[in-house]
Design a binder for these strands. Structure first.
Lengths: 333, 333
DNA sequence: CTGTTAGCGCCTTCAT
DNA sequence: ATGAAGGCGCTAACAG
């Protein structure tokens, strides 16, 4: 912590602290002469305004908090990068708070958490209504949700049921013998239930079109390539008649199915049709048809909404923006 | 922001602000009676201490910053979780700052960055000497490095050259026809050069034992399973005589080689020997011998050192702790 | 053990 | 356009 304060700058520049304050806050009514003297003094002294003092007075920190369930996946990596790009333009910083554990959640339930010491909060893929008592985030700061629908907060999301429906529609064009590989989220307060929604949408579409679909065609895997590959091998080994179609509720599973098919000498796009979800960049290499969430656009919009809320005096109307999934057709379906 | 202040609590509890301050800071010399009155008042009012005011006067926030190059990998996931577990025990919080871009780095170069508004900084896998002008982090707060050696800062690291040497030693027991699959880090200020060090160690060991090794045996892949698999297939297809040994500078590549060998009907542990690096949990499933960095222990130690530095009045001696890699032998070598 | 009080560094009137 | 001065909420030192 440098011990240079606004006072030192004022002394050095031969002006009052008020003038220095005006300069560092970019106010207009300062003479050119004084402005330059102050800037010079700041430079020479290496002065840095004290954020705590500033926060104490104004309550603003030019920073926001991003809360995510985890940080190990491409999804959140892209999300955070997109958010950051908007923040940079607006001269904001961000801290990232992964909801790592039950204990960490307890901390986040307390108003005193670091999380709430920023100007606003961006939450991604978190079931706010389950997570917090009263279903509310314990803060008066603006909150915007990404990848999660809400009745209470501003939100930018995608309809995961719709993803399932689209997958069903695409696959039905190719085969009526359909399988699903999905992930069973443990039903905790942490989980958002997106996998379930995708599956629900899939089944709903089939039902609406009078297609028989037995739950014995639903297979489960861990979020791990190795698992998915093994599971896919075992499923494909038992298939009697081709072609068959697979709804992979995440691209990773689609990858496993593609590799399994190749290992077994099956022809992807002829014997085996596959639709994945997420639009990972590498799906192109393996020719996997995939349904993409426009993460970048969603994140950027959410960030812009948040910044707008932070800076508006009156309370703007709540926005609930639904994005449509993007279908990227490739060889696999 | 609740507008309840320490004064309101003092009024309600019929004590002075000093007493309230003592209670919320857990100091001992407060009568049981007053303590309870204060706690009750805090509860009823929903009082939350203002962090900015606190930070302004004491300079302490009970939080630390973690700086990592990225957040998408298992490595940093495990690291952050381990750090967090120690922080929880000590009633600290953390914010995470991924060094996402060149622009973000510029922000981190400024003393005013949010990054430095915590009580201490933990940096992982970042070449501090290249990153910052003067090779110093622009702060007076304690800094501890993980996974990076330093002459200047406290650090907890592993010798990546040693990893390469160990791999060479293991593989030489099985075959003298050795290959390497590694990743070429672009040489930017962001990169730590661990892959290069692993390779250097490998080559040094061979040279020291008078084993011929041509650089044409070194192959490169992206950090992506798909790539690694393809590369491994292409290498193995050209091999004339088995057995051969592979040093995979990260487990992911080892996985690709295992899969490629299986695809080609080769016997891992007989035709093809493989040593990976990182000790990923899934290496067990595929029988991959791997050299592990004890990330958990390293992270916990680094965190403890940091907390100790934060809380000590005198400046403790600089600690530089080198961990030894852990070899986990499995079927593949 | 408890109350009082002087700042911490800054922003923001209010005069000038 | 500028300076002076009063807090913001809290801690810590001191006096009792």
């Amino acid at each position: 912590m440098s011990k240079i304060t606004i006072k030192d700058v004022a002394n050095k520049a031969n002006v009052s602290v008020g003038t220095v304050s005006r300069v560092i806050n970019g106010e207009k009514n300062v003479s050119k002469e004084n402005w330059q003297k102050v800037v010079k003094a700041i430079e020479e002294l290496g002065y840095v305004p004290n954020t705590y003092a500033r926060g104490l007075v104004s309550g603003k920190t030019k920073s926001i908090s991003i809360v995510v369930p985890m940080i190990r996946t491409d999804f959140y990596d892209r999300l955070i990068n997109s958010v950051d790009s908007v923040l940079i333009e607006n001269n904001y910083e961000c801290s990232i708070f992964p909801l790592l554990s039950e204990y960490r959640l307890k901390k986040f339930l307390e108003k005193s958490s670091l999380l709430y010491h920023s100007d606003g909060i961006l939450m991604s893929s978190l079931p706010v209504h389950k997570l917090f008592k009263d279903g509310s985030v314990p803060t008066d700061k603006p909150v915007v949700l990404i990848d999660m629908e809400s009745e209470q907060y501003d939100c930018v999301y995608i309809d995961n049921k719709q993803i399932g429906k689209i997958a069903a529609k695409i696959l039905l064009e190719r085969s009526s013998d359909l399988y699903v590989m999905t992930f069973v989220e443990p039903d905790t307060i942490f989980t958002s239930g997106v996998f379930k929604k995708r599956l629900d949408g899939f089944e709903e579409f089939l039902a609406a079109n009078d297609i028989q679909f037995s739950s014995s065609k639903i297979f489960h895997s861990e979020l791990n390539f190795h698992y998915a590959l093994n599971e896919a091998m075992s499923i494909l080994n038992k298939v009697q008649k081709f072609p068959v179609g697979f709804f992979a509720t995440t691209d990773l599973f689609g990858y496993g199915i593609v590799m399994a098919a190749k290992n077994l000498g099956l022809d992807v796009g002829k014997d085996v049709f596959i639709v994945g979800v997420d639009g990972q960049p590498w799906t192109e290499d393996i020719g996997l048809t995939t349904i993409k969430q426009p993460i970048e656009e969603m994140s950027e919009l959410a960030t812009n909404i948040l910044i707008q809320k932070i800076n508006s005096v009156s309370i703007p109307a709540r926005k609930s923006v639904r994005f449509d999934p993007l279908v990227i057709r490739r060889m696999s379906a």
